[in-house]
Design a protein around this nucleic acid. Structure first.
Lengths: 203, 203
DNA sequence: CCCATATACGGAGGACCCCTCCGTTTAGCA
DNA sequence: TGCTAAACGGAGGGGTCCTCCGTATATGGG
């Protein structure tokens, strides 16, 4: 049958075709619209509305993002990356336990600014869809790095577990309503840090 | 004109009529069906299905419970009451800080058994509908009682705040997925207690 | 016992949501 | 420029929550 004649050209396998220009444009537009919609309406924002806002059909949205979770994940991948990077910065600029505290506070600030991130993280620590695995892993690594350093330096008890702390942090952040929730979360972080500094079961 | 002739009789205002027998029957049946449905399918169980299961129309369900939250609230009011009562029992049987720890663990056990309770409590600590106010208040009181005693006895730091701790507890409970979540929640409770026993900011 | 009427019932239907499917349009290589 | 693979878009199916209103019935005074 001869070689294929279409623009698909050769490249049997391996490098995928470069996406079409309109596809890329729509992809970006959808992300922008989703980001805005989530910030306004929380993670419950309707996908139909997001598509309309981006000026594309709902079908287009679903081709780019197979499920609503995929939209959320895509929107916040970048934010999560920033959060993870911050951990490395903090660890270089202050004592391990303080870096841990500072990062946890930063985490809370992030949730406050973009509430959508919380459900995404919940699925990390829980049984949610595997789509969040990537972002989740980054956060996990950041937390683990901070905890390891603090443990190694003797700042916190040796039994400190990074997964536990992450759960706690997500929990604090999840209860994100009421005028006082941010302050409350910060107090709770301080309480955890104090607990970590004391001896287990000690007075 | 004259005075009303129907069975409504006089009683212009004040004591409401006794509800009709069929109404009471349906109310109970709906609660039973809802309890079962929530236990099986979690808090997301469909109201249409609950109505069908109870053998009544969806309209009947909505007359008895104006919103889905009202159904959840009604179902779990009793469980919440038990939890609140447990606080009083615990406080009489062990030292204040230990009573606090034991109650927090009990709370986690409750969530594990009936996941539906969690969203209800979230709305307490957050901005949810006022329908949960009643159950929420009971839990709040229980926590406050425990914290006050422990503070008064000097077991925990004077700055301990019961609302903060309740937030934390709800947060731990909310992240209720993964095989390890209960154990993790218990470790975190211990960590909080250790923090509460230490001096703020102290080593 | 009967019957008038307040009370309760039930489900069709509206508004919204998520997601699928497929006929139509278009970008971009040859 | 022509043609084909890629991308588009929205109708529509199945689901949810909740409202509305015509119909049925429990109940207590006469």
């Amino acid at each position: 049958m001869g070689r294929p004649r279409g623009p698909a050209g050769g490249k049997a396998s391996g490098a995928a075709r470069k996406p079409r220009a309109d596809a890329r444009r729509n992809h970006d537009g959808l992300l922008e619209a989703a980001k805005a919609a989530f910030a306004e309406a929380g993670a419950e924002a309707s996908l139909d509305q997001i598509a309309r806002r981006a000026g594309v059909g709902i079908g287009t949205l679903y081709r780019h993002f197979p499920t609503r979770d995929a939209v959320v994940e895509a929107v916040y991948r970048r934010e999560v990356q920033q959060l993870a990077d911050a951990a490395r910065r903090l660890i270089d600029s202050q004592p391990p336990a303080e870096a841990l505290r500072a990062w946890m506070r930063l985490f809370i600030d992030y949730i406050a600014a973009k509430k959508v991130i919380a459900p995404a993280l919940k699925s990390l620590v829980g049984g949610g869809s595997a789509l969040y695995a990537d972002s989740g892993a980054r956060i996990n690594e950041a937390m683990e790095l901070l905890v390891k350093r603090a443990r190694a330096s003797g700042d916190i008890r040796p039994s400190a577990d990074s997964a536990d702390l992450l759960r706690a942090l997500i929990g604090f952040a999840y209860v994100n309503a009421g005028p006082d929730w941010e302050a409350s979360a910060r107090r709770l972080i301080d309480l955890l840090i104090d607990g970590l500094r004391s001896q287990p079961g000690g007075k």
